[in-house]
Design a binder for these strands. Structure first.
Length: 314
DNA sequence: AACTCTCGCAACCGCTTCTCA
DNA sequence: CTGAGAAGCGGTTGCGAGAGT
């Protein structure tokens, strides 16, 4: 008649269960998870109880609060430094759990992968759907691409200037790069590279502060490209310095030169950041503030980017 | 209005590491 | 030292909500 003692409940937690779990923690602290079930308090595994506590019930969690820009930055940099050590990364982000960080990262990666994949000529069929061609004016391109291991040398590679508003944002460092993907199928366009033009001052600053990486090149734009304001905004984000971190370093956490990262252990107050009006009311994209480059990539941002010849052709 | 797609999130699974008898 | 159980961690899955068609 009554449910078997062995029956283990799964799925979403009820408020009553949460209450039982909270009471248990009040009495015994966040441990002895298995005893919750063995005492018959809940028909959940200890593992499940622990997870529920850690991810949802623990005090001071920032549930329902989007990652602030600063948090994004931290995650990107720490992921580059530590790899997928979500629990470790989460310790730098008070109020965030490893699950939060993991979900944040994977969803952004997925979005980015989709966007980049849609840039591939072979997959262009799937990209037309949502938006019109973005407006983005390439003013000119200069010099031919060169490949070298030196960033200084790279700075003379093929670059493009553009008329988007990013040029007015001194915070924006103007390089984007793509990951050195170890999955050959990640891009079907043969790892063509991207690079945007630096103005000299900022470029020099960037060069001084960044590791040397092989810079992808922005494919030669077709003349007269016009991108929507939305895409211009996106493209401006692509020039965020942390874009470089994410792609250039994220895949090489074990590199000995992780010291090139600019951050150290906990260095900001994400709670404050979370509770700021901008973070809470969704206005964090206020153009007056540093942008969050991950947000809202238009699906077809790379629609007009042409395939480059593979480096072996150069 | 119905359907599809994408995203964010919660929770589970399986493996590894830790603790303790 | 060793083995069993507990705890921790990273990867994956499933679902609901919202936006787009």
């Amino acid at each position: 008649m009554e449910a078997k003692k062995e029956e283990i409940r799964k799925g979403p937690w009820k408020a009553e269960e949460d209450e039982v779990l909270i009471n248990h923690v009040k009495k015994h602290g966040p441990r002895d998870w298995s005893s919750i079930r063995s005492k018959g308090l809940l028909h959940r595994t200890g593992k499940s109880c622990r997870l529920r506590w850690v991810n949802k019930l623990r005090p001071n969690l920032k549930n329902g609060c989007k990652f602030s820009m600063e948090e994004e930055r931290v995650v990107i940099e720490l992921q580059a430094q530590f790899g997928n050590k979500w629990a470790k990364i989460a310790t730098y982000l008070p109020g965030r759990t490893d699950n939060d960080v993991k979900n944040f990262w994977s969803s952004r990666q997925k979005r980015l992968a989709r966007i980049l994949h849609s840039a591939a000529p072979s997959s262009s069929k799937s990209q037309k759907v949502k938006r019109d061609v973005p407006a983005f004016h390439y003013v000119h391109s200069v010099e031919a691409p060169t490949f070298s291991s030196s960033l200084e040398e790279e700075s003379s590679s093929k670059v493009h200037s553009c008329s988007s508003s990013y040029t007015e944002n001194p915070e924006a460092v103007r390089i984007m790069t793509l990951p050195d993907m170890d999955r050959p199928d990640f891009f079907s366009f043969d790892m063509n590279h991207f690079q945007l033009e630096l103005d000299h001052t900022e470029k020099d600053m960037f060069i001084e502060s960044q590791p040397q990486v092989s810079f992808p090149q922005i494919p030669e734009p077709q003349s007269g490209l016009i991108f929507s304001p939305e895409s211009q905004e996106l493209l401006s984000r692509l020039q965020d310095p942390y874009f470089l971190d994410m792609f250039g370093q994220a895949r090489a956490p074990e590199l000995g030169n992780g010291s090139q990262l600019s951050i150290g252990p906990p260095f900001y107050d994400p709670v404050v950041s979370c509770t700021s009006a901008a973070a809470m009311d969704g206005s964090s994209n206020n153009p007056a503030t540093p942008f969050s480059f991950f947000d809202d990539f238009p699906d077809n941002v790379f629609d007009q980017i042409e395939k480059l010849p593979s480096p072996s052709d150069w």
